[in-house]
C-alpha cells in the first residue's frame, strides 16, 4: 500500500518474527528471532503487535532507505544507529523521513540487532510465520535492492526543544557481556552423565565460530555419557545441551531439528536463550544451575517488563495519534462543514 523500504546493504539480515510455533508438530523447527526479548521490545517500541515481522541483523553492518515517512525502533546488541546521518538512540522509537537512509554499524559486545517498523511489512508466511527455514528453503532473501513493502506511513514526530530526546521510556535494557552467565535446569537425561554432569558448572566454555541459529558449539571440559545404549529419536527442546562428539558441547537454539537421538544433559532457560543469542564466537560462557520454578519466575518478570513498556507506548502513541489514527478521525466531529 505504501512505498517500500529499499535494502542498500543487507549485511547478514533476515525478515523474521517470534517463530513458527506450529512447526515442531510437523517436523519443522520453531526458528524466529533468536533474542526474543529484544525482538518483542523492538515491535512494542514501534507500536506493533509483538509477533509482527521485523528485521534481524546478525553481526554485520546494514543500511536501508525509506521511501516514505516511517517510525522505527532498533534493539538488541549495542551498535551505532544513524538516520539521515544523525545519530539516533537504540531502544527508543525513531522517526525516519522519506528518502533518508537508516544505517546500523559496529554491532558489538552482542551479536544480533532488531529493527521493527511501525505497521510492519507484507511478507509471505508458512504455517503462520514468516521466519526463514533454511532446510525447507522458505524465507525472504534480502539482497542489495530488495524492496520490502511497508504497510503504514508515519509522519515525523518532532520535538520542539532541539537536543532533548524525543522519548525516555525507561526500559531496563538487557545486559550484554563477553562473559555471559547462562542459567540451565537439569535435563531429562542428566543421570546418564553420572558425576561428569557437574563439569558443566565448574568449567568455562568458549563459543566456536561454527555456531549458528541451529545451535551453539562450545569448547571446554565435556561431560561424558556413562551408557552406550541406543537412544530412539525423540523431540528435543530449544535450549537442549547435548554432547554429540568428543570435541564440543552443543546447545540447540531455535533452528534446531525437532527430533534427535542424543541424551539431553541440561536445558537453557527461556531468558538465558536470549543471552545466548547474543554470544559471539570467542566469548566465554559460564553455566549456572537453576530450577524450573526460578526460571519461570525470571521469564515472567521479563514479560511483565515488556507488558509495562507496551502500556506506556500505547498511552504515548495514543496521545500522538499513532496507530489509532482512523478511529480518532471517526470519533472527531467533521471540521469545517
Amino acid at each position: 500500500m505504501t512505498a517500500p523500504l529499499v535494502i542498500l546493504q543487507p549485511g547478514n539480515s533476515v525478515v523474521t518474527d517470534l517463530g513458527r510455533t506450529k512447526g515442531p508438530a510437523f517436523g519443522l523447527p520453531v526458528n524466529g528471532a533468536l533474542d526474543q526479548f529484544s525482538a518483542k521490545a523492538a515491535n512494542i517500541l514501534a507500536g506493533n503487535p509483538d509477533n509482527s515481522p521485523l528485521l534481524e541483523l546478525t553481526a554485520l553492518d546494514f543500511r536501508m532507505r525509506a521511501t516514505t515517512d516511517l517510525l522505527i525502533a532498533v534493539t538488541g546488541a549495542p551498535l551505532d544507529l544513524t538516520v539521515g546521518g544523525r545519530t539516533c538512540p537504540q531502544w527508543e522509537p525513531v522517526s525516519v523521513r522519506a528518502g533518508e537512509t537508516v544505517a546500523v554499524r559496529g554491532i558489538h559486545t552482542g551479536l544480533r540487532a532488531y529493527i521493527a517498523v511501525h505497521g510492519s511489512f507484507t511478507v509471505p508466511a508458512l504455517l503462520g510465520s514468516c521466519a526463514p527455514d533454511t532446510v525447507v528453503g522458505f524465507g525472504l532473501k534480502l539482497e542489495e535492492g530488495t524492496e520490502l513493502p511497508t504497510r503504514v506511513a508515519t509522519a515525523p514526530i518532532t520535538q520542539p526543544h532541539f537536543g532533548l530526546p524525543l522519548f525516555r521510556l525507561g526500559l531496563t535494557r538487557p545486559a550484554f557481556s563477553t562473559h555471559p552467565v547462562i542459567d540451565v535446569t537439569d535435563g531429562p537425561d542428566v543421570d546418564e552423565f553420572g558425576d561428569t554432569a557437574d563439569l558443566l558448572f565448574t568449567s568455562q566454555y568458549t563459543v566456536s565460530p561454527r555456531s549458528n541459529h541451529i545451535g551453539l558449539r562450545l569448547g571446554g571440559a565435556l561431560p561424558e555419557r556413562q551408557l552406550s545404549s541406543e537412544v530412539l529419536s525423540r523431540g528435543v527442546p530449544v535450549g537442549a545441551i547435548e554432547v554429540p562428539s568428543r570435541d564440543e558441547l552443543l546447545v540447540l537454539h531455535r533452528g534446531r531439528g525437532v527430533t534427535a537421538g542424543y541424551p539431553v544433559l541440561a536445558v537453557v532457560t527461556s531468558r538465558s536463550l536470549d543471552t545466548l543469542a547474543q554470544a559471539r564466537p570467542g566469548h566465554t560462557i559460564t553455566f549456572r544451575k537453576t530450577t524450573v520454578a526460578q526460571a519461570t519466575a525470571t521469564h515472567r518478570a521479563a514479560c511483565l517488563e515488556l507488558d509495562r513498556l507496551r502500556s506506556t507506548i500505547q498511552t504515548v502513541f495514543g496521545l500522538l495519534g499513532i496507530g489509532a489514527g482512523e478511529r480518532w478521525h471517526e470519533l472527531s466531529p467533521a471540521s469545517g462543514s
Binding site: G187, P188, S270, A295, T296
Partner: peptide, 10 residues
Amino acid sequence: IYESGDAALR
C-alpha cells in the same frame, strides 16, 4: 514425565 527446561515437558 520429565522436566525439559522451563518451556517443555518430555
